[in-house]
Design a protein around this nucleic acid. Structure first.
Length: 160
DNA sequence: AATGGAAAGTGGTTTACTTCA
DNA sequence: ACTGAAGTAAACCACTTTCCA
Protein backbone atom coordinates (compact mmCIF):
# COMPACT_ATOMS: atom_id res chain seq x y z
CA UNK A 1 0.00 0.00 0.00
CA UNK A 2 2.08 2.84 -1.23
CA UNK A 3 -0.11 5.74 -0.14
CA UNK A 4 -0.31 4.60 3.47
CA UNK A 5 1.35 6.80 6.01
CA UNK A 6 1.40 9.82 3.78
CA UNK A 7 4.58 8.90 1.99
CA UNK A 8 3.27 10.55 -1.16
CA UNK A 9 2.08 13.60 0.71
CA UNK A 10 5.43 15.16 1.37
CA UNK A 11 5.22 18.78 0.47
CA UNK A 12 6.80 22.07 1.28
CA UNK A 13 9.52 20.39 3.29
CA UNK A 14 8.74 20.50 7.01
CA UNK A 15 5.37 20.35 8.76
CA UNK A 16 2.47 19.72 6.47
CA UNK A 17 -0.36 22.07 7.36
CA UNK A 18 -3.86 20.77 6.89
CA UNK A 19 -5.29 22.21 3.76
CA UNK A 20 -8.72 23.73 3.53
CA UNK A 21 -10.23 23.20 0.12
CA UNK A 22 -11.37 26.30 -1.70
CA UNK A 23 -15.01 26.84 -2.62
CA UNK A 24 -14.21 26.17 -6.23
CA UNK A 25 -12.46 22.92 -5.39
CA UNK A 26 -15.30 21.76 -3.16
CA UNK A 27 -17.87 22.67 -5.79
CA UNK A 28 -16.07 20.70 -8.47
CA UNK A 29 -15.66 17.72 -6.18
CA UNK A 30 -19.35 17.86 -5.30
CA UNK A 31 -20.25 18.04 -8.96
CA UNK A 32 -18.10 15.04 -9.66
CA UNK A 33 -19.55 13.15 -6.72
CA UNK A 34 -23.05 13.68 -8.08
CA UNK A 35 -22.00 11.93 -11.27
CA UNK A 36 -20.29 9.01 -9.56
CA UNK A 37 -19.66 8.41 -5.89
CA UNK A 38 -16.54 6.37 -6.59
CA UNK A 39 -13.66 7.11 -8.93
CA UNK A 40 -11.46 4.85 -10.97
CA UNK A 41 -7.75 5.71 -10.97
CA UNK A 42 -7.99 7.53 -14.29
CA UNK A 43 -10.84 9.73 -13.11
CA UNK A 44 -9.11 10.34 -9.82
CA UNK A 45 -5.89 11.47 -11.44
CA UNK A 46 -7.70 13.68 -13.95
CA UNK A 47 -9.74 15.30 -11.21
CA UNK A 48 -6.67 15.80 -9.05
CA UNK A 49 -4.89 17.47 -11.93
CA UNK A 50 -7.87 19.67 -12.66
CA UNK A 51 -8.09 20.72 -9.01
CA UNK A 52 -4.39 21.07 -8.42
CA UNK A 53 -4.53 18.49 -5.63
CA UNK A 54 -2.79 15.20 -4.99
CA UNK A 55 -4.71 12.11 -6.07
CA UNK A 56 -4.62 10.94 -2.46
CA UNK A 57 -6.47 14.10 -1.42
CA UNK A 58 -9.17 13.44 -3.98
CA UNK A 59 -9.40 9.87 -2.77
CA UNK A 60 -9.73 10.99 0.86
CA UNK A 61 -12.32 13.58 -0.05
CA UNK A 62 -14.47 10.95 -1.78
CA UNK A 63 -14.12 8.57 1.15
CA UNK A 64 -15.19 11.24 3.62
CA UNK A 65 -17.98 12.35 1.34
CA UNK A 66 -19.34 8.81 1.10
CA UNK A 67 -19.16 8.56 4.89
CA UNK A 68 -21.11 11.83 5.25
CA UNK A 69 -23.75 10.61 2.82
CA UNK A 70 -24.11 7.39 4.72
CA UNK A 71 -24.36 9.20 8.04
CA UNK A 72 -27.05 11.49 6.69
CA UNK A 73 -29.01 8.54 5.32
CA UNK A 74 -28.69 6.73 8.65
CA UNK A 75 -30.13 9.75 10.44
CA UNK A 76 -33.05 9.87 8.01
CA UNK A 77 -33.66 6.14 8.47
CA UNK A 78 -33.50 6.56 12.22
CA UNK A 79 -36.18 9.26 12.15
CA UNK A 80 -38.34 7.10 9.93
CA UNK A 81 -38.03 4.15 12.28
CA UNK A 82 -38.86 6.34 15.26
CA UNK A 83 -42.05 7.52 13.58
CA UNK A 84 -42.88 3.98 12.55
CA UNK A 85 -42.37 2.80 16.11
CA UNK A 86 -44.66 5.49 17.50
CA UNK A 87 -47.32 4.66 14.96
CA UNK A 88 -47.14 0.94 15.75
CA UNK A 89 -47.25 1.66 19.47
CA UNK A 90 -50.40 3.67 18.96
CA UNK A 91 -51.97 0.95 16.84
CA UNK A 92 -51.06 -1.65 19.43
CA UNK A 93 -52.73 0.42 22.12
CA UNK A 94 -55.83 0.72 20.01
CA UNK A 95 -55.94 -2.99 19.21
CA UNK A 96 -55.46 -3.99 22.83
CA UNK A 97 -58.42 -1.83 23.70
CA UNK A 98 -60.46 -3.34 20.89
CA UNK A 99 -59.51 -6.82 22.03
CA UNK A 100 -60.80 -6.13 25.51
CA UNK A 101 -64.07 -4.87 24.08
CA UNK A 102 -64.44 -7.91 21.86
CA UNK A 103 -63.70 -10.28 24.71
CA UNK A 104 -66.40 -8.57 26.72
CA UNK A 105 -68.85 -9.20 23.89
CA UNK A 106 -67.85 -12.84 23.67
CA UNK A 107 -68.37 -13.40 27.36
CA UNK A 108 -71.92 -12.02 27.19
CA UNK A 109 -74.83 -14.60 27.20
CA UNK A 110 -75.54 -16.30 23.85
CA UNK A 111 -78.44 -15.18 21.67
CA UNK A 112 -81.64 -17.18 21.61
CA UNK A 113 -83.68 -17.71 18.51
CA UNK A 114 -87.22 -18.98 19.10
CA UNK A 115 -90.12 -19.52 16.73
CA UNK A 116 -91.84 -16.27 17.35
CA UNK A 117 -89.12 -14.28 18.78
CA UNK A 118 -85.89 -13.38 17.10
CA UNK A 119 -83.13 -11.87 19.13
CA UNK A 120 -80.44 -10.56 16.87
CA UNK A 121 -76.96 -11.93 17.20
CA UNK A 122 -74.31 -9.65 18.51
CA UNK A 123 -72.83 -7.55 15.80
CA UNK A 124 -69.72 -9.64 15.82
CA UNK A 125 -68.07 -12.62 17.39
CA UNK A 126 -64.42 -13.05 17.93
CA UNK A 127 -62.24 -15.48 16.07
CA UNK A 128 -58.59 -15.93 15.37
CA UNK A 129 -57.00 -16.45 12.01
CA UNK A 130 -55.19 -19.78 12.55
CA UNK A 131 -52.49 -18.88 10.09
CA UNK A 132 -51.44 -15.41 11.04
CA UNK A 133 -53.04 -15.39 14.49
CA UNK A 134 -54.74 -12.08 13.99
CA UNK A 135 -58.02 -11.42 15.65
CA UNK A 136 -61.00 -11.13 13.35
CA UNK A 137 -64.64 -10.33 13.84
CA UNK A 138 -67.15 -12.66 12.21
CA UNK A 139 -70.84 -12.25 11.53
CA UNK A 140 -73.39 -14.73 10.12
CA UNK A 141 -72.76 -14.32 6.45
CA UNK A 142 -69.34 -12.94 6.01
CA UNK A 143 -66.03 -12.59 7.55
CA UNK A 144 -65.22 -9.05 8.55
CA UNK A 145 -61.80 -8.21 9.71
CA UNK A 146 -61.24 -5.35 12.01
CA UNK A 147 -58.27 -3.96 10.13
CA UNK A 148 -57.32 -3.63 6.52
CA UNK A 149 -54.74 -6.16 5.58
CA UNK A 150 -56.87 -9.22 6.22
CA UNK A 151 -57.88 -9.54 2.65
CA UNK A 152 -55.80 -12.67 2.36
CA UNK A 153 -58.56 -14.49 4.22
CA UNK A 154 -61.24 -16.03 2.09
CA UNK A 155 -64.84 -15.83 3.10
CA UNK A 156 -65.32 -19.57 3.02
CA UNK A 157 -62.63 -20.39 5.50
CA UNK A 158 -61.19 -18.40 8.28
CA UNK A 159 -57.67 -19.36 7.39
CA UNK A 160 -54.94 -17.60 5.52
C1' DA B 1 -10.58 28.91 25.20
C1' DA B 2 -13.98 25.76 23.42
C1' DT B 3 -16.13 23.62 19.67
C1' DG B 4 -17.89 21.62 15.22
C1' DG B 5 -16.74 19.98 11.05
C1' DA B 6 -13.68 18.65 7.49
C1' DA B 7 -9.10 16.78 6.12
C1' DA B 8 -6.12 13.23 7.03
C1' DG B 9 -4.25 8.96 9.56
C1' DT B 10 -4.74 4.08 10.92
C1' DG B 11 -5.90 -0.62 10.87
C1' DG B 12 -8.85 -4.21 9.09
C1' DT B 13 -11.21 -6.47 5.09
C1' DT B 14 -11.97 -7.58 0.32
C1' DT B 15 -10.66 -8.31 -4.33
C1' DA B 16 -7.83 -8.99 -8.28
C1' DC B 17 -3.66 -10.47 -9.83
C1' DT B 18 0.83 -13.04 -9.85
C1' DT B 19 3.93 -16.67 -8.61
C1' DC B 20 5.10 -21.21 -7.69
C1' DA B 21 4.92 -25.96 -6.29
C1' DA C 1 -1.49 -27.38 -19.17
C1' DC C 2 -4.23 -26.99 -15.13
C1' DT C 3 -4.93 -25.98 -10.22
C1' DG C 4 -4.89 -24.39 -5.57
C1' DA C 5 -2.27 -22.04 -1.89
C1' DA C 6 0.34 -18.08 -0.66
C1' DG C 7 1.87 -13.43 -1.31
C1' DT C 8 1.03 -8.64 -2.71
C1' DA C 9 -0.98 -4.28 -4.05
C1' DA C 10 -4.83 -1.40 -4.31
C1' DA C 11 -9.19 0.13 -2.88
C1' DC C 12 -12.64 0.50 0.41
C1' DC C 13 -14.63 1.19 5.05
C1' DA C 14 -15.04 2.30 10.07
C1' DC C 15 -13.08 4.66 13.43
C1' DT C 16 -9.95 8.14 15.19
C1' DT C 17 -7.00 12.17 15.31
C1' DT C 18 -5.69 16.67 13.96
C1' DC C 19 -6.41 21.27 13.02
C1' DC C 20 -8.73 25.39 11.25
C1' DA C 21 -12.58 28.81 11.26
Amino acid sequence: MSSRGGSDDEDEGTTRKKLRLSKEQSALLEESFKEHSTLNPKQKNALAKQLGLRPRQVEVWFQNRRARTKLKQTEVDCELLKRCYESLKEENRRLQKELLELRAIKVAPPCVISHDYYMPLPAATLTMCPSCERVATVDNRSLTFAKPGFSHLSQSSAAC
